[in-house]
């Protein structure tokens, strides 16, 4: 039995499937919430909710793919497992291209689904951590003055030319000033070296 505070969200228009699936998953100790249509889910569940989404591909109104688009637009961190009564390769490619972690054809083996759910939980945690980290970095970066931002920008875009002299030449200020800015940046961001700075923001850039 898995005791996890994470929630499995199910969106499927077919009540039989929806109820049976949620029942079955609940019985296995999972926290399950289900919705008859995509719009209700969007209205009621936060895009960074912990857990995963089992999403029916073909639904009247907003279909699964559209819901996925909505979530992507909100930079959701909820991983999606598609289920479908009539899945073909074009649909599954489209869904996985948009970030779905799998595409299962009904009726699927429950053990496969549970395996996928576990993978989705892990992925969701990673995505949330990543999002938080990015948010934190953006916050720290928000503390920088305009000039400090310029210096940082230069360090990130020209990693091979980060001596104070080179930065000073590029920005048209004195190397001494660059030193001061660099010191402040490192202090504000909480690192000790330029290399750390690059490691912190490099990927973001």
């Amino acid at each position: 039995m898995i005791f996890d505070p994470l929630v499995v969200y199910i969106v499927d228009d077919d009540e039989g499937v929806r109820v049976a699936l949620s029942r079955s998953l609940s019985k296995r100790g999972m926290q399950v919430e289900h919705f008859a249509d995509a719009q209700t889910f969007l209205n009621q569940v936060h895009e960074d909710a912990k857990g995963c989404l089992i999403l029916d591909y073909g639904m009247p109104g907003m279909d699964g793919l559209e819901l996925q688009e909505h979530l992507n637009r909100r930079e959701s961190t909820i991983p999606i497992i598609f289920i479908s009564g009539h899945g073909g390769i074009p649909e599954s490619v489209r869904a996985t291209k948009a970030g779905a972690i799998d595409f299962l054809e009904k009726p699927f083996d429950l053990t496969v689904l549970i395996e996928r759910i576990q993978a989705a939980f892990d992925l969701g945690a990673q995505m949330r951590a990543e999002k938080t980290r990015r948010q934190m970095l953006a916050d720290k970066r928000g503390l920088l003055t305009e000039r400090e931002e310029q210096v940082l920008q230069h360090i990130l875009t020209h990693p091979s030319r980060t001596s104070s002299k080179e930065i000073a030449t590029a920005l048209g200020i004195s190397p001494r000033t660059v030193e001061i800015h660099r010191g402040r940046i490192q202090q504000k961001v909480g690192v000790k070296t330029t290399i750390e700075l690059y490691e912190l923001f490099g990927q973001m850039h």
Binding site: G16, A20, L21, S24, K106
Partner: peptide, 19 residues
């Protein structure tokens, strides 16, 4: 196509019933 959905439901219900 039409049987697909109820069949799935049956399968999951059986699963739940067994548990």
């Amino acid at each position: 196509h039409e049987l697909n959905q109820p069949l799935s439901a049956i399968a999951y219900n059986v699963d739940a019933a067994k548990i």
